[in-house]
Design a protein around this nucleic acid. Sequence first.
DNA 1: TAATATTTAAATCTTTAGATTGATAAAAAG
DNA 2: CTTTTTATCAATCTAAAGATTTAAATATTA
Lengths: 231, 231
Amino acid sequence: MREFRKSVRVLLIDDNQDHLRGVKELITLESSYEVISTTTSANLGINLIKKYHPDLVLMDINMPEKDGLQAIQEIEKLELGTKVIALSGYDDSDLIFRAMKLGAKGYILKTMASAQLIRAMDEVSQGKVYLPAVLSSRFFEYFQASYKEETSMSEENLLNYLTAREEEVLDLLTQGNNYKGIASKLFISETTVKTHVNNIFQKLQVNDRTQAVLYALNNGFSNKRRKVKIA
Amino acid sequence: MREFRKSVRVLLIDDNQDHLRGVKELITLESSYEVISTTTSANLGINLIKKYHPDLVLMDINMPEKDGLQAIQEIEKLELGTKVIALSGYDDSDLIFRAMKLGAKGYILKTMASAQLIRAMDEVSQGKVYLPAVLSSRFFEYFQASYKEETSMSEENLLNYLTAREEEVLDLLTQGNNYKGIASKLFISETTVKTHVNNIFQKLQVNDRTQAVLYALNNGFSNKRRKVKIA
DNA sequence: TAATATTTAAATCTTTAGATTGATAAAAAG
DNA sequence: CTTTTTATCAATCTAAAGATTTAAATATTA
């Protein structure tokens, strides 16, 4: 029995009129997709999404008027299940990474073959996330580079010199507590907290609480905490 | 002219003897790869890496003795340029994510066709990062889920109410500067900085600089800054 | 057990930090 | 061309933060 499949409803957003037409023609050739609307403006596009709830959005993220990444974020915030595939002229690692981070389900270069776009649309409309091999390779490099610091930095981490109690105090510092708040939460006097905090400053080689908090966050302190909680 | 290519030197680590032999035979069929050693122990494997500096390591990450993920981390810490491909019996999203995070250049399921393994080895030894489409799809789902909180949290991001100057001041706050430091860096008086900082507190609804910095970091402030610097 | 590290606390003092009010010039928005 | 926002600065005041010293009870470890 042949399965009945409702066509996937697509919205196109691209400030380039020519490219918009080209993509529309291309998609119209595919029987399983239906272009319900097109627009050259990201703001208008978001309004159209609110009205028509398309299944799929193909969006150029290199638009001058409104940042395409910001548009992705706004679309995700709507939580309508609309899947966004980012179209871009550049295979910039940072762009790819940020687009995916914000929830784009795919990322395609405009220079890629049209079959690649259809492939991505197929995968994404089936609920998967799809990046062409070239781009996913780029993505992973960026991803790993962004984690490398944390990993390699952990050779000489000043946080390791802290005592258990000092870690507790630092943890409360990284939650924005002042002396009074820490004292009441640990059931100790404020002067004791001051002593701990001063010792923390010495060990982390910083001058004030803000620097201590920044050092902690930049050196995997919160991660360490989470790890403890999970394990 | 035919290009001379030195064969890629491979080390196999797998606690399963049978699997170890199978993979070795498979790789030996490939002329461009040379299995320089095999071992069933992660600890021994790391020692072998220190001695022989292999180009590629295929490592089972489901070993009882030592955590395979930990082994990856240790290998990366050596910084010998050794590329690790993780072999696993499970397509667990969390495992894939953590392996990649720790620097694995590839992740292959043992149930996958041998051609898939060779493909991964080819890509990785050429300096790329390679995940089969099925697994990269899983990876991205996990990746996006882990960022979703942050994105959806920004329902009404108070950072958007800051003026350009206030953003500059907040940026310097997130670098651990005090009033004097900010004043000298922006070439304005200390009292002006105080005014800005107080206005920032009002807008972010916080009581002190540490809380302001934490709010900024938890609501994508650093990302916004990077965007500005690049664009 | 003896030596050492940790946690607790107080007292004192100096220095920032933060709140508040008021004011002016420039820039942006209407 | 007004009105509003932004950026600048000052003065004053209170509260909080940070530095320093001393000390004692409790754990830890050699």
